[in-house]
Amino acid sequence: MISTKELRFAYKNMPFLFPDIHCNSGDTLLITGASGKGKSTFLHLLSGLLKPHSGAVYIDNTDITLLNTQQSDLFRRKNIGIVFQQSHYIASLSLWDNLVLCSQWPDKMITAERVEMVLSQLRLINQASQKPGTLSVGQQQRLSIARAVLNMPSVLLADEPTSGLDDANCYRVAETLISLSKDNNTSLLMVTHDQRLKDIFQSRIELL
């Protein structure tokens, strides 16, 4: 479950006041808005990558705005999965190692079976030993999703994951995210300006 309360942020002379949201476990929420309305900023605030000037972000009853940098890193690691618009990855590591790198911590060790299962779900198992740079754009995007869902987070945040994709791929990515979040009982929040997705999410809010 994720919710926010009177979240404010500003870039120099550009203040943002974000609407309060609430998304239960297993639910999906689409956040839309035109360019420059702070969609990515909102998502970064929800993930703890940015600190709000005021307000609160609750994930499973923890206000992550009160966590220090290290606590925030650890909390994100355990509870939040993020899919970025660009497919970021560690170029020098294989797909398998990219996932393993993000899955090692003492109290929640991800097993090799889980890594294998996620790679299979995202049809990447045959490329497990390849470097991400050798994959197609679509496969790289699936690698981003695999990394985000690997640790079965409470909250899955996706930042424009379908931008630049054709209709077929757009719906495939969105359905994959929805399906995985349902399977893991994860709250899925996607920020996008992609109008094609407005009908397939349970709830939708628009940033004005």
Binding site: Q70, D73, K78, F84, I90
Partner: peptide, 17 residues
């Protein structure tokens, strides 16, 4: 060259240390 990788690692919760 790898600043995105570093940011990514931080975003998935790998600590600065």
């Amino acid at each position: 060259e790898r600043k995105y990788e570093l940011a990514l690692m931080r975003s998935v919760g790998i600590t600065r240390e």
